[in-house]
Design a protein around this nucleic acid. Sequence first.
DNA 1: AATGTTAATATGTTTGTACATTACAACATA
DNA 2: TATGTTGTAATGTACAAACATATTAACATT
Lengths: 242, 242
Amino acid sequence: MKYSIDHKSPIPLHAQAETLLRQLIAEEQFQNGMVLPNEVDLAKQLAISRTTLRQAINKLVFEGLLVRKKRTGTKVSNAAVSSKSNNWLSFSQEMKLRGIPIKNFELHVTWVFPDEYLANFFEIKTDRKVLKMERVRGKPDEPFVYFASYFHPRVGLTGDEDFKRPLYELLENDYSVIATLSKEEISAKAADSFIASKLKIPDGSPVLLRKRFVFDQGERPIEYNVGYYKADSFIYTVESTR
Amino acid sequence: MKYSIDHKSPIPLHAQAETLLRQLIAEEQFQNGMVLPNEVDLAKQLAISRTTLRQAINKLVFEGLLVRKKRTGTKVSNAAVSSKSNNWLSFSQEMKLRGIPIKNFELHVTWVFPDEYLANFFEIKTDRKVLKMERVRGKPDEPFVYFASYFHPRVGLTGDEDFKRPLYELLENDYSVIATLSKEEISAKAADSFIASKLKIPDGSPVLLRKRFVFDQGERPIEYNVGYYKADSFIYTVESTR
DNA sequence: AATGTTAATATGTTTGTACATTACAACATA
DNA sequence: TATGTTGTAATGTACAAACATATTAACATT
């Protein structure tokens, strides 16, 4: 087999198994509608226990990528959501897609102590400094988003990186940190004075608040990102199938 | 304990444990934000193994109802109402899952001529009437969402249906219309006077605007839905993997 | 030929056990 | 006083073993 599982890796076996299955399905080694090998054999092939394998399969079943059936086996669901539930574009790419030329300004990098909320997400203590990157984007006279990213110390960023490069490319190539999972929360809010000044809008104007929690393969937190978008400058679109 | 687990029941123990936890949370035996007993003890109390208990907890964690944290314990997520992509719970169902009792009021059904925008989406002419359903939801003294749904004439609704029933169930059972695809747009906006009065908030307050375009199996448009959510009463969550 | 029985095989359920990781607190030491 | 060190309690990960259940296929019986 092309891919395999590394028992020495810090990434949990079930997580490795999960991404491995994803890859095989994506590459159509396991094709749409095809039944995959039975659990006992597959576990043996991957050199993990059946229980661990089942953890991985369970997740994919929950996502709807796989369907279990007794006696018949577990098959790849071709109705497949394609799970490209969009949005693995970084922001600059998103905007280019809309034909809007965007500039970065007020790019600012510092080391800060995390607050409770962030320390909690990162699973670190509040006295452990983290790298914070802030930036404002838009046309210079018309900013439309302010956002702040915080990076887990584990990633190993020094603060001297070229943050004009696409972020996920930088992480992947130079730090071999692979972001595989993101959870986002989108809500509406009234701009406080800080945000209002950054976006050059009146206090209390509506903004779209977008929090993004990014994880690596082992589901370990690696980045926290908050963005404040001027109302109407950003529309979040989601497509989902059943 | 009021409820307990029956080892002789044909219902799997982990499933029993799952519903039991749901009940306890709904009844606020385990309240919002409260940490529940540690796994070892809880398993002992319920007379099931820790692993089995974890199966149950895992599901609720996946749903977002519980949050695990090392050393601290597992706590009930008091997070505001959220909506996951890729699952097709209608709004009332989402709320029930979290044990929040929600009421519909100001339910209102009329026939209207579509504007250009809607006619365009439905691919019909503007002189063809469509069914419009409006409603406000929340606690009676505290509305937190106003929304309007428009249904394509093709669906065949008469206006006399019981709109208190879950919508997709109604469409599926009584009209054999199966909604399989939805596209959503989420943005922030300032409430105009109409929305402000419906939600009992000041003019210009921020609201989350959610437009939903629903299609049937043949990708034909069947519903257009606009919702205005009071800021902070609704968080839209999206999870995506790569 | 239709029906019932059984065996095989897949997933489903449950337990017991062990060790890893994290966070905190209490204590001990420089 | 400041700084390690160790203990402890929680979740996280992993494995092995056994038994349950559902479905199919093959076979036997009527």
